Amino acid sequence: MFKSNLLAGIIAITMLCTFLGFLMAWIKAVPLIAIMVFVIGLMIYDFIKTMREIRDNAGN
């Protein structure tokens, strides 16, 4: 289960970063770019936290 969640999470992060990257290049508004970077950071933080919880609870 850990590997499937890891793979799905990496695919989702890659797809969102690609999509938002195109938006950042196309719109070029500094406040919007700051919000997008912040949201991507929060998503990566949550992904890492969730993966650690799954890994730690796998033995239970």
Results as ranks from 00 to 15, higher is better:
residue 14 T to G: 10
residue 60 N to M: 11
residue 33 I to K: 00
residue 18 T to S: 14
residue 2 F to D: 04
residue 15 M to Q: 13
residue 3 K to G: 00
residue 38 F to I: 11
residue 47 F to W: 08
residue 30 V to Q: 05
residue 40 I to P: 02
residue 28 K to F: 09
residue 23 L to Y: 04
residue 33 I to R: 01
residue 32 L to Q: 08
residue 10 I to T: 08
residue 36 M to H: 02
residue 5 N to D: 08
residue 44 I to A: 03
residue 16 L to E: 09
residue 27 I to S: 09
residue 2 F to S: 03
residue 18 T to G: 14
residue 21 G to D: 08
residue 9 G to L: 01
residue 44 I to H: 01
residue 32 L to M: 10
residue 13 I to W: 00
residue 5 N to A: 06
residue 32 L to V: 08
residue 4 S to W: 07
residue 15 M to D: 13
residue 5 N to T: 02
residue 33 I to D: 02
residue 39 V to K: 09
residue 54 I to D: 07
residue 58 A to H: 11
residue 14 T to F: 05
residue 39 V to T: 13
residue 58 A to W: 12
residue 27 I to P: 01
residue 14 T to L: 09
residue 2 F to R: 04
residue 25 A to K: 12
residue 3 K to Y: 01
residue 23 L to N: 08
residue 45 Y to H: 07
residue 24 M to C: 10
residue 21 G to L: 04
residue 41 G to A: 03
residue 43 M to L: 15
residue 13 I to M: 02
residue 38 F to P: 01
residue 35 I to Y: 06
residue 19 F to D: 11
residue 16 L to F: 13
residue 29 A to L: 13
residue 24 M to V: 06
residue 40 I to Q: 05
residue 50 T to R: 15
residue 1 M to L: 12
residue 1 M to I: 09
residue 26 W to R: 10
residue 12 A to E: 13
residue 51 M to H: 06
residue 47 F to R: 02
residue 49 K to R: 13
residue 26 W to H: 11
residue 10 I to E: 09
residue 43 M to H: 06
residue 27 I to K: 14
residue 14 T to R: 00
residue 10 I to V: 12
residue 51 M to E: 05
residue 18 T to H: 04
residue 6 L to F: 08
residue 45 Y to A: 10
residue 57 N to C: 11
residue 15 M to S: 14
residue 24 M to S: 03
residue 6 L to H: 03
residue 45 Y to P: 02
residue 4 S to D: 11
residue 48 I to K: 05
residue 15 M to N: 12
residue 1 M to D: 09
residue 7 L to R: 14
residue 34 A to R: 12
residue 19 F to Y: 15
residue 47 F to L: 03
residue 52 R to T: 09
residue 58 A to L: 10
residue 34 A to I: 14
residue 49 K to S: 15
residue 44 I to N: 02
residue 48 I to Y: 05
residue 23 L to C: 12
residue 33 I to V: 14
residue 48 I to W: 01
residue 44 I to P: 01
residue 30 V to K: 06
residue 5 N to P: 00
residue 2 F to G: 07
residue 29 A to N: 10
residue 57 N to E: 13
residue 10 I to N: 05
residue 50 T to D: 13
residue 60 N to L: 09
residue 49 K to N: 10
residue 35 I to S: 06
residue 10 I to R: 06
residue 9 G to F: 00
residue 31 P to T: 01
residue 25 A to F: 12
residue 28 K to W: 09
residue 56 D to N: 11
residue 46 D to M: 15
residue 14 T to K: 00
residue 53 E to C: 05
residue 50 T to V: 11
residue 5 N to K: 04
residue 50 T to N: 13
residue 44 I to D: 00
residue 6 L to W: 05
residue 60 N to I: 12
residue 23 L to F: 08
residue 47 F to C: 02
residue 57 N to G: 08
residue 32 L to S: 05
residue 40 I to D: 03
residue 54 I to P: 00
residue 5 N to W: 05
residue 24 M to K: 02
residue 40 I to H: 04
residue 40 I to C: 06
residue 40 I to K: 04
residue 36 M to L: 11
residue 26 W to L: 14
residue 59 G to N: 15
residue 59 G to P: 03
residue 23 L to I: 11
residue 51 M to S: 06
residue 22 F to D: 02
residue 50 T to L: 14
residue 35 I to M: 09
residue 18 T to R: 07
residue 46 D to N: 14
residue 36 M to F: 08
residue 48 I to P: 01
residue 29 A to S: 12
residue 48 I to T: 05
residue 21 G to V: 03
residue 17 C to I: 15
residue 43 M to I: 12
